[in-house]
Design a protein around this nucleic acid. Structure first.
Length: 522
RNA sequence: GCAGGAGUAACUCAGUGGUAGAGUGUCAGCUUCCCAAGCUGAAGGUCGCGGGUUCAAGUCCCGUCUCCUGCUCCA
């Protein structure tokens, strides 16, 4: 990312803290890696976004219903879904060039047979020399250097070499399970492990056997925090379909927290271990799935674009075949051009009948649909638009953050504006007495009460000079400011100021609420 | 996890071994009829945390945590 883009990102992070959008978790204790708290304005923004999603995905459609499932589910759910087996990656570090990579991927791209001659390649001569010295010292092997490459290494029994430098000197394969493991029940499962150690039941076991044994001892109470909200919608498919008498095609939508032990966390709230999802599983008849896939991909990117200042920063990208998850027949990502480049915001996957099939098999439940018209049974295919709600917050903060030069009292100055869509803006309207006297504060408080009665998030603000108040509200994205001035007391009109244009016009104070309601509805 | 950079007031930063600083912001008061205006005053700091060297550490050394950038993964 360029320094300019890095700068923008830092400014957004700084504004988030200064103005109460996002704080680091547990900050006074030194912070917790990759955990963030949404402050008074952040929670409004996030909720506005999630409510808009729910409104458009559930309330405005006849064919989608909602669900709010427990975060902790039966551990068998994760066996069946493949998350316990497939959600853990064997990772290996190259001891020479420090590259970290997945063993299974290296197996495909850098397969070796034992005894095979290897040529180690480095970016430049200096690095090759450093590596040569390191290998000589640490592994007592002298390699011959030829420019940027080293000769004389031989492949070991692992079946692969470092994909970066072709080194055979690698760390052990380590399992990184991406799911958060916990235990249910008041009895600490470590008690059983302690007992086993005391009894000598673990004596003489190798590392791998030891891990397996400990897993076995603690498996009774082991539970996992969901790594995605999707599975509950598959698991409750039959209950929901029957209780609501739904006909395929139909969808189940759910929003909520998910947890993943990411190998790396990055970019502020973009990738964090605890995050919030907005997912929908759309069940359709096999054969119609490609059509629905196209429909939802288009619908979803357009949904994101409608709240954006710059729709061109969103795109749909089809996954390459080798990029696809094991369960997916096809996948489109809605990507956003973040300050550091294009990155994922939502994934629309064709999960086929994979999940329902797996759960039917593992649970013994019949997860089929009988179509009364066609007189046939089938396991529905699933199109899944899965969006990151917390990513959405970041996307709209990036989209809204604007700096512009305006003429101030002391010459040109920078105006920072969050050009948030009014439906997303944390505060909808600010009500301001022009000065703190002549009955203006009283009038303003009367007006702000009217907004409260309508459930519109309005703020009364009388601190500092009027210009400063306007700028403060620009910075938190308040779309409109209503100002009570001397004329208000004479003819009952107030000014309404637009955040983006800074233009003002007069309206009747008695029409203010209706006016804002009308503007919000657009 | 690895490599590189950073951490001093709410924010942005100055301070290279000898009394903890500035601007902005915040709060109180005065002033002010429209875009970060002015005046007066105030609050706010375990210099990320722990250890070490030193008569003396924000400053030097070690460890650790957090953040940023890059690498492998995902909503």
């Amino acid at each position: 990312m360029s320094t300019k883009d890095q700068d923008v990102m830092q400014k957004i992070v700084s504004l988030c803290k200064r103005r109460g959008f996002v704080f680091q978790s547990s900050e006074i204790y030194g912070g917790l890696r990759s955990a963030y708290d949404y402050g008074p304005l952040g929670v409004e923004l996030k909720r506005n976004l999630m409510n808009a999603w729910w409104r458009d995905m559930v309330h405005r459609r006849e064919d989608v219903v909602g669900l709010d499932a427990s975060i902790i589910m039966h551990p068998k759910v994760w066996h069946a879904s493949g998350h316990l087996a497939g959600f853990s990656d064997p990772l290996v570090d190259c001891l020479v060039c420090k590259e970290r990579f997945r063993a299974d991927k290296a197996m495909e791209t850098h397969a070796t047979t034992e005894g095979q001659a290897l040529i180690l390649e480095f970016a430049d001569k200096g690095r090759a020399k450093t590596a040569q010295d390191l290998i000589a010292e640490r592994f007592e092997v002298t390699l011959e250097r030829d420019g940027k490459s080293l000769k004389g290494a031989v492949a070991g029994p692992r079946g692969y070499a470092c994909p970066n430098c072709s080194s055979p000197w690698l760390s052990d394969e380590r399992q990184f399970n991406l799911m958060f493991k916990s235990s249910v029940g008041a009895v600490d499962p470590m008690g059983a492990v302690a007992q086993a150690i005391e009894d000598g039941a673990l004596d003489g076991l190798t590392g791998r056997e030891l891990r397996a044994k400990i897993d076995e001892l603690t498996s009774e109470s082991a539970v996992y925090l969901r790594p995605e909200t999707a599975q509950a919608m598959f698991v409750q498919f039959a209950n929901i379909q029957q209780s609501m008498a739904l006909k395929v095609p139909f969808g189940i939508a759910q929003m909520g927290k998910s947890f993943r032990n990411e190998i790396t966390v990055e970019h502020f709230i973009f990738r964090s271990v605890e995050f919030e999802q907005m997912e929908m599983e759309f069940f359709c008849e096999p054969g119609t799935d490609d059509e629905w896939m196209a429909y939802w991909s288009q619908a979803r990117i357009e949904w994101w674009q409608q709240f954006a200042n710059d729709p061109s920063k969103f795109r749909l990208r089809a996954h390459e075949p080798e990029e696809l998850a094991h369960y997916a027949k096809g996948c489109f990502d809605v990507e956003y051009d973040y300050p550091w480049g294009w990155g994922e915001l939502e994934g629309i996957a064709n999960r086929t009948d994979y999940d329902l099939g797996k759960h039917a098999k593992h649970s013994g439940a019949k997860l089929e649909y009988f179509d009364p018209q066609q007189q046939k049974k089938f396991v529905p295919y699933v199109i899944e638009p899965a969006a990151g709600a917390t990513r959405g917050v970041l996307v709209y903060l990036c989209d809204a953050y604007t700096e512009e030069t305006v003429e101030g009292a002391k010459g040109p100055e920078t105006r920072v504006v969050l050009k948030l869509h009014p439906q997303l803006a944390p505060v909808k309207v600010a009500v301001l007495p022009l000065v703190k006297k002549n009955g203006m504060p009283e009038k303003a408080r009367e007006l702000v009460e009217r907004f409260f009665h309508q459930g519109i998030n309005a703020k009364y603000d009388e601190q500092h000079a009027i210009g400063k108040r306007y700028r403060r509200h620009d910075e938190i994205g308040t779309p409109w400011c209503l100002t009570i001035d001397g004329q208000t007391l004479e003819d009952g009109t107030i000014t309404i100021r637009d955040r983006d244009t800074m233009e003002q016009r007069r309206i009747a104070i008695d029409e203010a609420v209706a006016e804002i309601q009308a503007l919000l509805a657009v």
